[in-house]
Nucleic acid binder design. Sequence first.
DNA 1: ATTCTTACA
DNA 2: TGTAAGGA
Length: 129
Amino acid sequence: MRIGELARRTGTTERALRYYEEQDLLRPARRPSGYREYVETDVRTVRNIRTLLAAGLNTVTIGEVLPCMVTDGEALVPACPELSTVLLQDRERLTEAIDDLQAARRVLDAIIAGAGSPAARRVDACQPA
DNA sequence: ATTCTTACA
DNA sequence: TGTAAGGA
């Protein structure tokens, strides 16, 4: 099948599919015309890629993890033992990212609170971008 | 009508 | 990632 049909059947865009190929997540053959030719199993692969992307994994990690995942109906199941390590490591990365965002919010909250102080009323140059 | 590559007010 | 341009 060509890129248009795969995009339709996976709910993605052609742009995304070309990007996945660029990241070596997909390796469609080429027709003499230069058109990409995808196989049936690519439908499932693309769905798995999207799931992993939604889990916050980057394309490099997905490339390592993808071949070790088996699809059980709707769910993705780890098929290799070494996989849990990689996944747990990524979970920690997400936890750190969450911590950083919460810290940023606390800083912003402090600034917002300052808007109610008397000092804020002394300012004449109030032209917010 | 579809797809391809390249590039970015 | 969207999208426009210029070809095949």
